[in-house]
Structures are given as C-alpha cells and as structure tokens.
Write a protein that binds this DNA or RNA. Structure first.
Lengths: 113, 113
DNA sequence: CTTCATGCGTAGCAACGCTACTTGTCGCGC
DNA sequence: GCGCGACAAGTAGCGTTGCTACGCATGAAG
C-alpha cells in the first residue's frame, strides 16, 4: 500500500491501537503491522513524531520505564483521546462512505440482513 | 467533512467523475457536490491545479471551447487515465479495508461467536 | 450600476508523512 | 572480543498535496 495514502488518518489509527491498551512506540508499530496483516509497516520516523503530536494535543499520555536496560516510553489514551477517537471514527465513516460513492466497490450499502 | 481528509484521494475522485463523461472544471465541482450529497464542496483553487496535475501526468486531456462568450476547458479521461482509475480503485479498496479494520465502522470485531 | 453566477487561473502557505540518519543496549555467532 | 541484528527512541530536512485568498472576465438580474 502506498504510504502517503494515510495522510490525515494516521492519528486515528494510532488512537485506535492504543484503545486496546497502552503500548510503547515500537510495539505500536508491530501492532499496526500485525493487525493490518502486514499492509501497514510504518517507519519509526513516522510514528514517533506523530505520537509526540498526539501528546502535545493531550490525546495520549506517556510514561517512561526501563525494561531490561532499554528505555521505553509507553503511551496511553487520555479521556480526550477517547473522545477524539470517537470523532475520528465518525469522520472516517463519513469519509469512506463519500469516497466510496465515487470509487464504488467496497461499500456494504446499509444492506446487511 | 474536514477537507484535508481527502489528501491523496482527490485524483482518484476526479478520475471517477470524468469516467462518466467529459466535463469542464466548474461542472466537475458541481458534479462532486451533487454526487456526494453536498459533502464535497471543493474550491476552484483545489480543482484547477489538480486537473492540471492530471493533465501533465497524461491521465486526462483537455480541449477549449467557447460557450456563450465564456471560455471553457473540458477534460476527458485518457486511456492511461482509465487504467490509473482502476488502480486507484483497487488501492482505495485495500486502503479502506485496512483502515476500516482499525476504525471499525462497519466491521464487527472478527465475529466473536 | 452593482451584484451574482459562471468560468478560469495563480501565489503562497501549512500540514503531514517519508527518507535518512543518529544514539544506545542486549544477545548471538564467529 | 567483535560485529551484527533486534529492540528502542529520536531528529532534520524534504516533497507532496490541498487550502486560502486573490485576480480576471462575461452575462444576466436587480
């Protein structure tokens, strides 16, 4: 998958990963890779700055710890982050529905049953 | 809908609109607005440069005409544009499936039962 | 005559993610 | 002991992309 397609949706992805529990940066990368079936393999230079952005915005909080002599910064969702995630989810739904109407195909058109 | 969410998908949208027939810039904006139910209301400063980008890339071709004393530049999909659109569609499908797996919108969590 | 819809276009900006690089520990193979 | 790869965090600089804010012109409506 072309990487820059993510533009504007990375934050939401990060929040979604952290929703399931606090993780440190490196683990987040692995979680994204695992849960996406390998489609998402983001470089550290993408993740770390994004995480700091989210922290500055108050959507995540971090704590340092040392595990086996290695420094770890573990991030967890704040309340504001949870709320933001809900908004991002709604935004994603609208966005994907809208674009899907043009690019067609993948939309289960409100017709489950 | 936040505008910059489009990032990276605008070209695909444009190609998709032109797939149904040649249109001039202004009409493209209206077509996007109409087909999206008003969700997509893009300013000319977004559309025109994008169209020129696509033309430079050989994905669309333009012809000038004068209608009622007004100059119009009409764009139509080239063969390469059609092929590119197919690729964009595939890319969109993969992208929305991947992000959807995290933002969950329409995906129940891997069917617990 | 002014305003609005139609119609095209550019300049400059800001956001975002990527590439490439650095720093450091730990464990394994040679 | 030494090098290398996995683990772990980070920064600097760049390019792409869309947006805001303009400018120009015509025709119809008030």
């Amino acid at each position: 998958m072309k990487a820059q397609t993510l533009h504007g949706h990375l934050d939401a992805l990060l929040l979604a990963v952290l929703e399931r529990g606090a993780l440190h940066g490196y683990a987040i990368i692995e979680a994204l890779r695992a849960r996406s079936g390998g489609a998402l393999d983001l470089p550290t230079g993408t993740i770390y700055p994004a995480l700091r952005r989210l922290e500055r915005a108050g959507l995540v909080a971090s704590t340092w710890s040392t595990v086996n002599g290695r420094e770890r910064r573990t991030y967890e969702l704040t309340d504001a982050g949870g709320r933001a995630l809900a908004g991002e989810r709604a935004g994603w739904r609208e966005f994907s529905a809208t674009v899907g109407r043009f690019l067609g195909a993948d939309e289960p058109p409100t017709a489950p049953a």
